[in-house]
Design a protein around this nucleic acid. Structure first.
Length: 447
RNA sequence: GACCCUAUGGUCUAGCGGUUAGGACAUCUCCCUUUCACGGAGAUAGCCCGGGUUCGAUUCCCGGUAGGGUCGCCA
């Protein structure tokens, strides 16, 4: 059987991190089985659906690297798409739904009620053969017991989610529905409708939810990090986010954490998806992100680093390209996340280094200033302002003063960067260049 | 209220009847080092509770408890 799976988000203007993981698991399963991955836009709520909102989804998917075999190619609902089962926007499938509603009515499974159309739901328990959770027997709740039927077409003529979702899965020949566990209870409705249509339902697999780490409830729009945009803006590497998401609810079972996607595609399968919810651990993502950044090709690091500074509104265009590149290069292997970069190395592009007054008191005592003056004069003598020369000079001065390098290194770093930590001092000095370095040292000496 | 899912350190997980309960993140200590980061060595910390089944339960069954989800003319 050729596997056909889909991701069917609603364009609300943001892509939920849990939705991204659902998309990822569907994509993994499609790639693992050599099947087809469909992207379908569930834009039945016309009021809040815009092209921008659709674009957020398409961007997010592309950023994650989740390519779809069928679905829209532009955010325009009436625009082009790929695949033989379109349109892939529900807003364009109205006629189809009308036909299907009529079919249910003809078969006696649907009826008009106060201007709406309701589905005649089975009153007996429904077996959901879930490929992740196992067999689930869903009984009616007390409220459903009172009125088991549910609306499939609103009184304004718009069909509702449960109905269009089923019709589309049916029409698009979806074989496996992998979705969040929040849908498990509703699956009985969907199965009942498939049965009403006289069609075998797809196989369902309900994956655990991603919980917010604070109170352990379902990640909601308000929670920090619930939107994929957060990770895009904060400068996370997409491969790291994808890798982390894979580890939330799935495991290679051999203690590996960081692993290439193609390896995951090979190992991933629905039966070994975990069944319990997981809290999102931003610290671990940070760590993974750092791993990816550290092993990144130098050119890519430079490119993403420059992007991060630009994102933070640093006027990079005012500096020579070679200077910018050299500055970013000194940060390789130092940060776990590109979002940290502007704070970490902003001193390269900020001529007025701000130093905490309390630290000035502490670091720049009269004694320290005397030493720094000596070092400054030695630096001024240098004709080749290079890292090795700078190191040699600093150590020489330290020797003459009868002290270790540390007491000289710290004030120098503080004077030039305003921070107690940062890139390698000697390399950072070389990049800043003699003029800047002397100017910055002079500045604190005059304080 | 009803229905459904779940339960290994703070977090993500390995385990599938007999293990000194393994790994990772985080935390702490030490080493390396121009700072930080990396790397290396170590430490703290876990099988929700109660019954069964069994020679033996973290593992299987039942009950409880706890957490999560669902019962919309939202998706």
């Amino acid at each position: 059987m050729n596997v056909r799976v889909r991701f069917a988000p609603s364009p609300t203007g943001f892509l939920h991190i849990g939705g991204a993981r659902t998309a990822l698991f569907n994509w993994l399963y499609a790639r693992h089985t050599g099947g087809t991955f469909i992207l379908r836009i569930e834009d039945t709520d016309t009021a809040r659906n815009t092209q921008e909102a659709v674009d957020v989804i398409l961007h997010g998917m592309r950023w994650l690297g989740l390519d779809w075999d069928e679905g829209p190619t532009t955010p325009d609902a009436k625009g082009p798409s790929k695949g033989d089962y379109g349109p892939y926007f529900q807003s364009q499938r109205g006629d189809l739904y009308k036909k299907r509603v009529q079919e249910l009515k003809d078969k006696g499974f649907a009826y008009d009620h106060e201007g709406a159309v309701k589905f005649k739901m089975r009153r007996t328990p429904i077996l959901i053969p879930d490929i992740v959770v196992g067999d689930v027997e869903r009984k009616l709740t007390d409220r459903e017991e009172a009125d088991p039927d549910f609306v499939i077409v609103r009184s304004d003529g718009q069909p509702v989610f449960h109905f269009v979702n089923v019709v589309d899965d049916l029409e698009m020949k979806v074989t496996h529905v992998i979705r969040g566990e929040d849908h498990l209870s509703n699956t009985s409705k969907h199965i009942a409708m498939f049965q009403a249509f006289g069609v075998e339902p797809p196989k369902y697999g309900h994956i655990p939810l991603i919980l917010n780490p604070l109170d352990g409830s379902k990640m909601s729009k308000r929670d920090k990090g619930s939107s994929l945009k957060f990770y895009m803006d904060e400068g996370f590497v997409p491969e790291a986010v994808v890798n982390y998401l894979c580890l939330l609810g799935w495991s290679p079972k051999d203690n590996r954490e960081k692993m290439p996607l193609d390896e995951i595609v090979k190992l991933f399968d629905v039966p070994n998806i975990l069944r319990h919810n997981a809290k999102f651990d931003l610290d671990k993502l940070h760590w993974l992100d750092g791993e990816y950044i550290r092993e990144m090709a130098p050119e890519r690091f430079r490119e993403l680093g420059i992007e991060a500074f630009k994102h933070a509104k640093f006027p990079l265009e005012q500096f020579p390209a070679a200077y910018v590149a050299a500055a970013v290069d000194t940060c390789r292997g130092k940060v776990k996340n590109f979002g940290e970069l502007p704070a970490y190395a902003g001193f390269y592009f900020n001529e007025d280094v701000t130093i905490d007054p309390a630290l000035i008191e502490k670091e720049f005592t009269a004694e320290a200033k005397g030493r720094l003056q000596k070092l400054r004069d030695a630096f001024a003598q240098l004709t080749e302002f290079t890292a090795p020369n700078l190191e040699l000079t600093l150590k020489k001065i330290a020797g003459e003063l009868g002290i270790k390098a540390g007491p000289l290194v710290h004030p120098t770093r503080m004077a030039c960067t305003g921070a107690g930590a940062g890139p390698s001092l000697y390399h950072l000095l070389e990049v800043l260049g003699k003029d800047r370095v002397l100017k910055r040292i002079d500045r604190v000496l005059g304080m």
